[in-house]
Design a protein around this nucleic acid. Structure first.
Length: 631
RNA sequence: GCUCUUGUAGCUCAGGGGUAGAGCGCGUCCUUGGUAAGGACGAGGUCGGCGGUUCAAUUCCGCUCAAGAGCUCCA
């Protein structure tokens, strides 16, 4: 069967990996089962995907998870019948005839012809072979390849049902997509299912609630994160980390407001072109009353805001225009450049409700943003420094499983601003920079920002989803739109180049991923609570308080567990709370001014003089170690 | 935004046309202990919101809000 979106060439398809071939065959088994259960179904496509396969169908009623058992039982029968996958090649006319007769995408003769199959057939270019695969009396339009027999599909499971648009086009029919997972054997399948369970355990939404890191409140609004005290400590530690690096690299910190006039965004190009992905404009005070008095309608208001006859404000969707205005507030000489303006800037974007999720996809978020204004000659060096910073950040956090994407414009699309010539310069600058970075990268068309190309650091989360985090972008366009300039050594005006960069991307998304990455067992420097002191009994509270004071004095985040519980229960609770260090103080420790140290991951580390522990943990925190040094 | 699923105590969930239950957590008291759960008692719910059907709705129906999965989108 053919891919709905992009047809691969036959050669590419023959290179399909063994596991994809198996999953592809599984999709046919699924389709066979569906048609046996619901002969009126119209099939669309069903390719292999990561970890499994799916098949898109149109059916008069909704399939629910209650049907999965029935579907799997039918699949089991089909597998047991051990029919071979038989390939045949037909002419276009023969294929059309078979579809119209309901023979393709059907188990037996019937009147229903799949309009989707017909359209997919039309998408096959003239001259390319039209091949069919048959199994268990079910014929599908399909280029293959397949495993020999249905009996090879041994380890599969129907996972979920969701909707999907035909050909991924949201103006087309909405189909039901049935997902299945499939592996070579039962062991690999159960390993995969176990991995999914593990992902659930690490889900930042679950851990965030359990550990009191953040909260999303219906009354505050969708996609708006409330950072609770413990989450705020994690965030502060991250911000401190970035700030230290910015200070070292010659950045200047700035603060800007959360709103700006619509004119600012008319100039930048955000308004009105991206209106639907922004919170609605805020009309100026008095404007609504005046319009009301004048009997003006809502659509006049909208038009007025768009054409500028009514002034208003917008929640900022990006920080760049504000930073641009700071740059532009002074005369700049080439000697002043680069000007590097940094801000933890909160931006607001109206993401569609169905796209929101936890901290990783939100409507208000804080970028660890900075804009560098420099001369064209300085671009390469500045981009390199930015990339080094992103690399350093990821390395410090032990995030090694990322890929680098050079996001370029799609030359056929009209969503980009600026001259082609500037785009080519910017894209070349980034390409040169990423080449010396020393990491693998892929170039992807159509992934650029509307004002310029980007280098994105994309990391995979625990269940394999890609997330764009750090980003470095070169922009020749916004400086032109805002008429920015500096005086060069030739005493004439020049336009600076802008670099946008954010090593974390957004603190919300980054923190969400970090929670999952560490399973909330943050390295000590990030842990909201770094040490918990556990008195053996109330008698030792005084010693505990002395130890707590000494640690707090050294800048360590420490608490004392005063509950009327036994040590075992307190240890258990501290571990569930993911506190890196537990210090037990009883008679022995109180007498010698020492502490019995237990680490979250390393269990009992024995007793140590308190002063020694303070020294050790301070060093671990200052160096931002991923874990304690093991002796 | 679309399709499906879900919404009962702070959390995880059971229940079900006659106004509700468990475990954990929380509070008080007892216990003062040596590294993953000591014991007793107690408080806590307009069963997401609005409307409809019904003698009666938390339960059935409609709408709405929110969450989850997938799709589409992500300057």
């Amino acid at each position: 069967m053919s891919e709905p979106k992009e047809r691969k060439t036959l050669d590419q398809r023959h290179q399909m990996s063994d596991i994809d071939r198996l999953r592809h065959s599984c999709a046919h088994v699924l389709a066979t089962a569906i048609l046996r259960i619901w002969p009126e179904a119209q099939l669309a496509g069903g390719p292999p995907v990561e970890n499994g396969f799916y098949y898109d169908i149109e059916l008069g009623h909704s399939i629910t998870p209650d049907d999965f058992e029935k579907i799997e039982a039918e699949m089991k029968k089909i597998v047991k019948e051990n029919s071979s996958f038989t390939k045949s090649t037909v002419t276009r006319e023969e294929a059309i005839d078979l579809i119209n007769k309901g023979r393709i995408g059907a188990v037996s003769d019937r009147d229903v012809a799949s309009k989707y199959k017909l359209e997919m057939l039309n998408d096959i270019p003239e001259g390319e072979d039209i091949s069919l695969f048959e199994n268990n009396g079910f014929i599908d339009l399909c280029a293959g390849p397949h495993v020999g027999r249905t009996g090879n599909c041994k380890a599969y499971k129907v996972m979920s049902v969701a909707s999907a648009f035909f050909k991924g086009d949201n103006t087309r029919e909405s189909l039901q997509r049935i997902y299945g997972t499939c592996f070579k054997n039962k062991t690999e399948l159960s390993d995969h299912l176990e991995k999914l369970e593990e992902a659930k355990r690490r889900d930042h939404r679950k851990l965030g609630r359990e550990l009191g890191l953040f909260h999303i409140d219906e009354m505050v609004g969708q996609g708006l994160i409330l950072w609770k005290p413990k989450g705020a400590l994690v965030r502060r530690s991250l911000q401190d980390f970035i700030t230290e690096n910015l200070d070292a690299q010659g950045y200047s910190q700035v603060f800007t407001p959360h709103i700006g006039k619509l004119d600012l965004y008319r100039t930048s190009g955000h308004f009105p072109y991206y209106q639907e992905s922004q919170y609605a404009a805020i009309p100026e005070r008095g404007a609504l009353e005046k319009l009301n008095d004048d009997g003006v309608s809502c659509s006049d208001l909208t038009n007025g805001l768009s054409d500028g006859s009514i002034e208003g404000y917008m929640l900022k969707p990006m920080n760049c225009p504000h930073h641009i205005k700071i740059y532009d507030s002074e005369h700049r000489s080439y000697k002043d450049l680069p000007v590097r303006l940094a801000e933890f800037g909160t931006v607001y974007r109206w993401e569609q409700s169905g796209e929101l999720g936890g901290m990783t996809r939100v409507r208000g978020f804080t970028q660890d943003d900075a804009h560098i204004f420099c001369t064209p000659d300085q671009v390469a060096e500045e981009v390199k420094k930015c990339l080094d910073l992103v690399k350093k950040v990821l390395k410090t956090l032990g995030m090694h499983d990322y890929r680098v994407r050079l996001s370029l414009r799609d030359p056929d699309s009209d969503k980009y601003v600026g001259e082609a010539e500037n785009w080519e310069k910017a894209e070349q600058a980034l390409r040169d920079a990423v080449k010396v970075l020393g990491v693998e990268y892929t170039e992807e068309l159509g992934e650029a920002a509307f004002y310029g190309p980007k280098i994105d650091f994309v990391v995979k989360d625990v269940i394999g989803r890609d997330w764009q985090l750090g980003t470095v972008q070169v922009d020749y366009n916004l400086p032109v739109r805002f008429g920015l300039s500096y005086v060069g050594s030739d005493n004439s005006k020049h336009t600076p180049v802008m670099i946008h960069r954010a090593p974390f991307g957004s603190l919300e998304r980054f923190t969400g991923l970090l929670i999952e990455h560490f399973e909330a067992k943050f390295p000590t420097w990030l842990a909201p609570e770094q040490v918990r002191i556990i008195p053996l009994s109330d008698k030792f509270l005084e010693s505990c308080e002395a130890a707590s004071a000494e640690l707090a004095n050294a800048g360590v985040r420490v608490t004392i567990d005063r509950a009327a519980e036994k040590v075992g229960a307190k240890i258990r609770l501290a571990r569930l709370d993911r506190v890196p260090y537990m210090l037990v103080i009883g008679g022995r420790e109180a007498e010698t001014n020492s502490v019995s140290v237990r680490h979250r991951d390393l269990e009992d580390l024995g007793a140590r003089p308190l002063s020694q522990f303070v020294e050790d943990i301070t060093e671990e925190i200052e160096n931002r170690e991923l874990g304690p040094k093991t002796q």
